[in-house]
Amino acid sequence: MARRRLSNDEQALWTALARTVRPLRPTARAVIVPATPSMEELIDLPVVKGSGKTRLTPPPSRMIVAPPARTPAAVLDSGWERRIRSGTISPDMSIDLHGHTLSMAHARLNQAIAQALTRDIRVLLVVTGKPPKSAGAGGASRRGAIRGEIGHWLETSPYADRIASVRIAHPRHGGDGAIYLILRRKK
């Protein structure tokens, strides 16, 4: 099947739409996004004639390089690692999500992160609840519903770029039933 080329209007609409989309799992590489010219700039663009078709061409220097998305780090510096491992880390704020419905837990998590960021908190303890001890037949353990969704919620959160790291909590703070969210400082 032969593909047709997008018209200038269609291309402008597609570019505007593409800019509003956020990937579910952002990568750390830079993405080149063509800049959308304004209507005034379109009027001033040179017209290229050839092969019976007339089209407007933006100058080649109109490309914007988007900065790489910031993702949580798997390992922090040695000071943070030592404090997490030994349990001497002290959460500045905590939120307990277990016992809530998925939608209520998701909303409370976003509210807690927003509140922590406005108060410039560095360590947020999120209690999700431990996985069930008995998984029924077969003995295979399954994760709790909130625990299973929290990774996706954090990746797609509007605050994802402000999360420096996500770590399992020390047994003193809940162990497998809780996580630490280490938040980035304000710039």
Rank of each mutant, 00 (worst) to 15 (best):
L42Y: 10
M93G: 08
T88P: 00
L125H: 03
T54A: 14
E41M: 06
K133S: 06
A178D: 06
A28H: 03
L124M: 09
T101V: 09
P37C: 10
P171H: 08
G138M: 08
V123K: 00
A73C: 02
A178F: 07
A145N: 08
V127K: 13
D9N: 08
S134T: 12
T27S: 10
R119G: 07
A178L: 10
A28L: 01
I182D: 00
A105G: 06
V123F: 00
T118I: 11
I113N: 01
P72W: 06
K186H: 15
P171I: 06
E40R: 11
H106E: 09
A164C: 02
I84Q: 03
L17F: 15
S90Q: 11
G129E: 01
G99Q: 14
D92P: 06
L45W: 14
A178S: 12
I113W: 01
G136D: 03
G138Y: 06
G148A: 14
E10I: 09
G129K: 01
S51E: 11
S134N: 11
S103C: 06
I179R: 03
L13H: 09
I150P: 03
P58W: 05
T15W: 11
G177W: 10
A69V: 12
R184E: 13
G129A: 02
A114V: 02
R4Q: 11
